[in-house]
C-alpha cells in the first residue's frame, strides 16, 4: 500500500483565508495545468502544466512547484482552528485539479483523515471515470458552466461544452452537494438570454442547486504582462454592478437560488 502523504503533484499557489470559494474560511490549493484556455482567465500561469517564469510584484518568479501531499497538508492544517469555527476547509482549484487525479485525490483523502472539510472548483472537463473517483472524497463541488452554446464555448475556451454539461448532470445525479458557477464575461455571456439558459439548466439538474454569478474582473491583467502574453480584454472595464443585478434577477426569475459572487 502506498503512503498517500508521499504522492507528488504540481501546484502554483496556496492561498489562506479565502472566504469566497466554498463555505466558511478556506485554504485554496491551486494545482497547475488546465485543459481550457479561457480568454478571461485570471490565473494565466495556471494553464500550462510546465513550470514557467513570470515577472510579478517586481520580481521574476518561477511558477510551479513539485510538492508532496504531506507538504501541502502541513500548510492546510495550519488553519484548522478557523475551519472548525466557520465550517470551512480546503478547496482544490487550478488550473484543473482533476487533471492530476492521483495527487488531488490523495490530498483530499488526507484532508478528510485530518478532519478537514473538502471542496473542489472544477471545469468538469476530466473523464467521467476520473470525476467519479473524486466524488467520494468531496464534501462540496463548485463547477463552472460558462455557456450553454457549444460553438461559443469552443471559441472562448478552446473546448466544447458537451462533456462538461453531461458531467454536471451526472455529478448532480450522484447526489453531490453541487453549486454551479458562471463567470460573467463582457461580450461572451453578459446578456439575459445566456444567463437564463444557464439558470434553466441548473433548474433541470437532479436535486436543488444554486447558481453563483461571478462578475468579470481584470485582476489577472498584470500576470499576462508578466508572462509576455497579450491580454484579450485589455482596456475592458469590470462588470457594472447594475448590469449584474439585471442578470441576477433574470436567473432568479427562472426559479432557482442565485447570487452574485462566491
Amino acid at each position: 500500500m502506498h503512503n498517500i502523504l508521499e504522492t507528488k503533484g504540481r501546484i502554483f499557489d496556496i492561498q489562506r483565508y479565502s472566504i469566497h470559494d466554498g463555505p466558511g474560511i478556506r485554504t485554496i490549493v491551486f494545482l497547475k495545468g488546465c485543459a481550457l484556455r479561457c480568454r478571461w482567465c485570471c490565473n494565466p500561469e495556471s494553464q500550462s502544466f510546465e513550470p514557467q517564469n513570470m515577472f510579478f510584484g517586481g520580481k521574476n518568479e518561477l511558477v510551479g512547484e513539485d510538492v508532496t501531499v504531506g507538504e501541502v497538508l502541513k500548510t492546510v492544517q495550519k488553519d484548522i482552528f478557523y475551519y472548525r469555527r466557520s465550517g470551512g476547509g480546503v478547496t482544490l482549484s487550478g488550473g484543473e485539479a482533476m487533471l492530476q487525479p492521483d495527487f488531488a485525490n490523495d490530498l483530499l483523502e488526507a484532508c478528510h483523515m485530518a478532519g478537514i472539510n473538502t471542496c473542489i472548483e472544477t471545469t468538469g472537463i476530466a473523464k467521467w471515470e476520473v470525476i467519479e473517483r473524486f466524488l467520494g472524497n468531496l464534501d462540496y463541488v463548485l463547477m463552472d458552466i460558462k455557456h450553454m452554446n457549444n460553438e461559443k464555448h469552443l471559441e472562448y475556451t478552446k473546448q466544447p461544452n458537451t462533456k462538461i454539461i453531461e458531467h454536471a448532470i451526472k455529478i448532480a445525479a450522484a447526489g453531490a452537494d453541487l453549486t454551479i458557477r458562471t463567470p460573467v464575461i463582457p461580450g461572451f455571456n453578459d446578456n439575459v438570454e445566456d444567463i437564463e439558459d444557464i439558470a434553466k439548466f441548473v433548474k433541470l439538474l437532479p436535486g436543488e442547486h444554486h447558481l453563483h454569478l461571478l462578475p468579470y474582473h481584470r485582476l489577472g491583467e498584470d500576470k499576462y504582462a508578466g508572462l509576455n502574453r497579450d491580454y484579450f480584454y485589455k482596456g475592458i472595464p469590470p462588470m457594472d454592478t447594475e448590469r449584474m443585478k439585471v442578470l441576477l434577477d433574470a436567473a432568479k426569475r427562472v426559479g432557482i437560488e442565485a447570487q452574485i459572487g462566491g
Binding site: Q15, S18, I19, H20, D21, C42, F56, G57, G58, L214, P215, H217, R218, L219, G220, E221, D222, G261, G262
Partner: peptide, 16 residues
Amino acid sequence: RVAGYSALFTTLSKSL
C-alpha cells in the same frame, strides 16, 4: 480581497 481573488494591494498596477 475581491470575489475569487486576492492580492497584495501594493503589487497591483495603478489602474487595478
